[in-house]
Computed example of a mutant assay.
Amino acid sequence: MSVTTHPVSLRKVTDDEADIRLDRWFRRHFPAITQGAIQKLCRTGQVRVDGKRADAATRLLPGQAVRIPPLPTTAAVAKPVQALDPREQKDLERMVLYRDDHVIVLDKPQGLPTQGGPGITRHLDGMLDGLRFGSEHRPRLVHRLDRETSGVLVVARTPGVAAKLAAAFRGRTVEKTYWAVVVGRPVPPEGRIALDMVRTDGFRGERAAVAGPYDTDTAHSITDFRTLDHAGRKLAWLELSPLTGRTHQLRVHCAAIGAPILGDLPYGTEREGRNTALVDGLSEQLHLHARRISLPHPAGGRLTVEAELPPHMAETFRTLGFSVPAARPAVRR
């Protein structure tokens, strides 16, 4: 059976695609083609940049013309847009805290997974077609929050922006601020937690722990914290600023200083038949919220966005008498 192919064409590299490798650029536009096929097309001179032969690792510049040779029709078929249920679409749009041509910042609700996994059929990554807002590009996640953590989550609107933001997160130029209610009152009330951590496999999925002296494959983790308010010695409101991004870092760090996050049963301990992360009369949901994010905007300046507390945390704050300032409007300077 013969395979229909597309004719030779030229495609311009956009400003958004600057400095991307040729093979990665090719896979963005033709996701069904394999890496091996791209390398062969380059090696045989069928793919060219500004009329010249180029290898797969060539970095592209805005305005360059990439020669697209005849490809099987299947390699050029774009992934169909996944339509959402109208109610789900409205719920998704209500999450938007900020939007421009480059980024979208969401207020992820507690309980919604960021990505799929075993037994997870509904997750934010699977809903991102609903945030195209007329763009040809499907938005992309550039970081994640745990399922039970609420708050600010950044999404890139184009592949080039996704690459820039991913680099910013890796380079630690992104400032993240979390709020947590913890069981206990840290002494001293502020400071830095620096621990080696190790990943473990728990009964309900991936876990993390403070590394022991004989653990291998450990990762160093750092969090700055300060107490914003407290209710006697039993509960405290902490501001947490992670300087590294390890799995469950904030949850492990709070437990390590003897103040597990309220509702965090996996990292609480059993004492007298009760988990130390629970308090009578208060919600058993995890009390960890991504309050603020500040990051270099891909088009220049710095973007800062805040999210209001989720309902269960707002109720706990009222019960404990903590005075919470309203989230400030998003600002780019």
Rank of each mutant, 00 (worst) to 15 (best):
L61A: 12
A180P: 04
T58M: 15
G184A: 05
E272G: 08
H123F: 12
R99A: 10
V3S: 07
S294G: 14
P80L: 07
R21L: 14
V3Q: 07
L41P: 04
D229S: 11
T34N: 08
V96E: 14
D15M: 14
E88N: 14
H137M: 08
G171A: 11
D91H: 05
D101P: 01
L165M: 14
A307P: 02
S2C: 04
A32V: 04
S323L: 11
V182L: 05
L60T: 01
P189S: 13
G205E: 04
R333Y: 12
L22Y: 02
A37Y: 00
P139I: 02
P80F: 03
L195R: 10
L250G: 00
H253Y: 05
I293C: 04
M1V: 08
A194D: 13
H123Q: 12
L124P: 02
P311M: 10
T223F: 12
T200W: 06
D15A: 15
A307S: 13
A83G: 09
V81I: 15
A65I: 01
P113T: 06
L320W: 06
T244I: 15
G300N: 12
A209E: 15
F169W: 12
T114K: 03
T200L: 14
D23M: 03
P260Y: 00
D217H: 13
L278F: 11
H29E: 00
L265G: 01
S9C: 13
G160W: 03
D264W: 00
D201V: 15
A255Q: 03
R204Y: 15
